[in-house]
């Protein structure tokens, strides 16, 4: 299927016999149908969550996948009053926002150094960064927990903020470095001749040029941290600072029977990342490529 799509999709230079044109039209239609089917599979979960969150459990049981008939806002109410989804979301934001800021700033500085300066061990540093990227978070869970503990940061938001920053730094540096490679060295040299210091150059020359990349980084880090579960579970054990994914995993087992409430909670938990995504969607498209192409 995909090979066909690729052929059809090839560069468009063609002269046409009528039969050929019809064939092409049919091909385009087939391609469109394939794409539409895939899009259906990615959009349907959203519809499913919305539908399940807005219907009664009895109605859900009649046709779980179909169109709801008995609408209700009870599930949303319960998600706020019983699951306290608002409080959970606030807790998450209080961790994720500072962590995203830290990781973005640190990654920018480091990538700037790695790309635009020549110094010994530069290549090794890059290799280390790439190597650390593939580290499965579960592998270092225990020793990181120990470090956080010894630093007295257990049950402290700062502990999780720093851990999230560290876990996402390698990937962020890697991505930022890819973006920054597209900034020509001549521009930096010009800035230096004008007497701008390294930080000033970074701020007023490099950053504006990698803006889409920067926003991409912010989006991806936000998504990752918002959805993270394991570290949040063991580092923030108190109910007062529990993050949204831990809260959801927990109420999922409590409310399992009431899929409506579970769906309402899941749906509400998706709003912040969805907003971020919608907001930065355009930059995301540009950002990811500017990193990849160079």
């Amino acid at each position: 299927m995909s090979t066909d799509a690729a052929r059809l999709a090839g560069p468009r230079f063609r002269q046409a016999g009528k039969a050929r044109r019809i064939g092409r039209l049919g091909g385009a239609l087939a391609l469109w149908l394939i794409l539409a089917t895939i899009a259906l599979s990615t959009l349907y979960p959203l519809f499913f969550l919305v539908a399940t969150a807005l219907r009664t459990t009895q109605d859900y049981r009649l046709s779980p996948a179909g169109i709801p008939h008995e609408l209700t806002l009870d599930n949303i109410h319960l998600a706020f009053s019983e699951v306290e989804i608002g409080k959970l979301a606030l807790n998450s934001l209080m961790v994720v926002v500072p962590a995203v800021i830290i990781v973005t700033v640190f990654a920018c500085l480091a990538a700037y150094a790695l790309v635009h300066f020549r110094f010994p061990l530069r290549r090794s540093a890059l290799v280390v960064v790439v190597a650390l990227m593939a580290l499965p978070p579960a592998v270092v869970l225990i020793p990181i927990f120990k470090v956080v503990l010894e630093a007295g940061l257990l049950n402290n938001r700062l502990g999780l903020i720093l851990v999230y920053s560290a876990l996402n730094l390698p990937f962020s540096i890697f991505l930022m470095a890819s973006f920054m490679r597209s900034v020509p060295d001549e521009l930096l040299n010009a800035a230096r001749i004008d007497g701008a210091g390294p930080l000033r150059t970074l701020w007023s020359v490099v950053i504006p040029l990698v803006r889409p990349g920067l926003l991409t980084l912010v989006t991806l880090n936000f998504l990752f941290m918002w959805n993270e579960f394991l570290y949040a579970l063991v580092i923030l054990q108190k109910e007062t600072n529990r993050t949204i994914m831990v809260g959801i995993a927990q109420f999922q087992s409590h409310w399992e029977k009431n899929l409506g409430v579970v769906s309402a909670g899941l749906l509400l938990s998706m709003i912040p990342p969805l907003l971020i995504f919608l907001f930065f969607q355009r930059d995301l498209a540009r950002g990811l490529t500017s990193g990849a192409v160079k």
Binding site: A110, R122, P143
Partner: peptide, 25 residues
Amino acid sequence: FTPWLLLAPAAALLVWLLAYPLGDA
């Protein structure tokens, strides 16, 4: 020293919360 200074914050965080734990593991 500029590149080192620029790398310092990230490096400190990575050593403290990733490389050292890795060694510990």
